[in-house]
Every structure is written in structure tokens, then in C-alpha cells.
């Protein structure tokens, strides 16, 4: 049973912030829809991250239904970033964390939702800055039906995903502070 919706503040499943923007070494930026089964992994991990790093001013957690151009400023201000989403192009339950680069200039932008590479490119073009390290953590979706909760295969992958997020963020926090790209 997915604990996320019951634990969140009513009416505020996403868009949580957990720290002072001026001290952000790692921005965790998740997206997803908790009513579309495995698409809810982003909000689930964001909520977990919000609790995990609640007292750590170096980490900021943001989550919404989708990534939009309005997030470009937050991305530009972060030293490092971990995007979190479910993946429809990988095996169900497969947890992956990979580097992501900004999209080419010729990429057409969707106005309602961007992918991680497009958001990085927008940050670079609009604000002249983007994180020095950008990573995308995904879990392969098993099912995207209209319901809450996760498929069995994704439910089983959640501990690995949490551990992966923990390890990734710790690695980013322990790396040396350098100028943003």
C-alpha cells in the first residue's frame, strides 16, 4: 500500500520545499501523478526525501505533476540536481541513475511539460547557469493505470530506489563545492 498520499498534507501532495534556497547544494526535483499508479514514484521518493533531509539545509526537494519552464530558475540556482521520474522506456522495476545533459537548442519545448534535458537547456539559456552535476533517477514503470498505489514489480523496487537516492545525494553533498556550469 503506497503510504505517500496518506502522509502528505491534504491538498498538497507535491510542491514541497524543505530548505533555504540560498544554501542549496543538491536540488531533488521529482514529478509524477499519484493517481496513475507507477507514475507516482516521483512524488513517493520526493516525500521520502523531504523527511530524510528535513533538517539539512543543503538539500531542497521540489515535486509537481510535471516539470515546467517555471522551474528553470530553481534549477539554475542549484549546485547539483537529481531529477526523479518513472520511466516508460526501461524494464519494469529497473532502477537507473544516469547523467543528463541539456537538450540541443533546436529542441521543441512542450509548454506543459519538459523533460530533464529540456529543463536544463532552458535554465542555461534563460539564466545563464545550470547545475555542475545533473542526474536522472528513474524506475521503470510496470503499470500506469488510473489508480493509486504501485504495481508489484515497482513496489519491490522502491527500497533499491530509496537507497539509490540516498547514495546519490550523499555523494553529491560530499563532493567539493565548485562554480556552477
Amino acid at each position: 500500500m503506497f503510504p505517500g498520499p496518506q502522509r502528505r498534507r491534504p491538498g498538497a501532495p507535491c510542491s514541497v520545499e524543505s530548505s533555504n534556497a540560498n544554501q542549496i547544494r543538491c536540488l531533488i526535483l521529482a514529478c509524477g501523478n499519484t493517481l496513475r499508479e507507477d507514475d507516482g514514484v516521483g512524488p513517493f521518493l520526493a516525500h521520502w526525501a523531504e523527511e530524510r533531509w528535513r533538517d539539512d539545509a543543503r538539500v531542497r526537494v521540489l515535486c509537481d505533476h510535471q516539470w515546467t519552464p517555471e522551474m528553470a530558475e530553481d534549477v539554475a540556482q542549484a549546485e547539483t540536481i537529481v531529477f526523479i521520474d518513472c520511466a516508460t522506456d526501461s524494464a519494469p522495476g529497473l532502477v537507473r541513475c544516469m547523467a543528463v545533459k541539456p537538450a540541443p537548442d533546436s529542441t521543441k519545448l512542450g509548454m506543459h511539460h519538459l523533460d530533464a534535458s529540456q529543463l536544463l537547456a532552458l535554465s542555461k539559456h534563460v539564466y545563464g547557469a545550470m547545475p555542475r552535476t545533473s542526474l536522472l533517477l528513474t524506475i521503470g514503470a510496470g503499470s500506469l493505470e488510473l489508480r493509486e498505489g504501485f504495481s508489484a514489480v515497482v513496489q519491490a523496487a522502491l527500497p533499491e530506489a530509496r537507497q539509490g537516492l540516498e547514495d546519490t545525494v550523499q555523494r553529491l553533498l560530499s563532493s567539493k563545492t565548485v562554480q556552477r556550469a
Binding site: 537548442d105 533546436s106 529542441t107 521543441k108 519545448l109 537547456a121 532552458l122 539559456h125
Partner: peptide
């Protein structure tokens, strides 16, 4: 270029 990237540029 007739998109938001073009405008930003």
C-alpha cells in the same frame, strides 16, 4: 527557432 528558445536567445 520560432519557439521559446529562439525568444530567449
Amino acid at each position: 527557432v520560432r519557439n521559446i528558445f529562439g525568444v530567449v536567445g
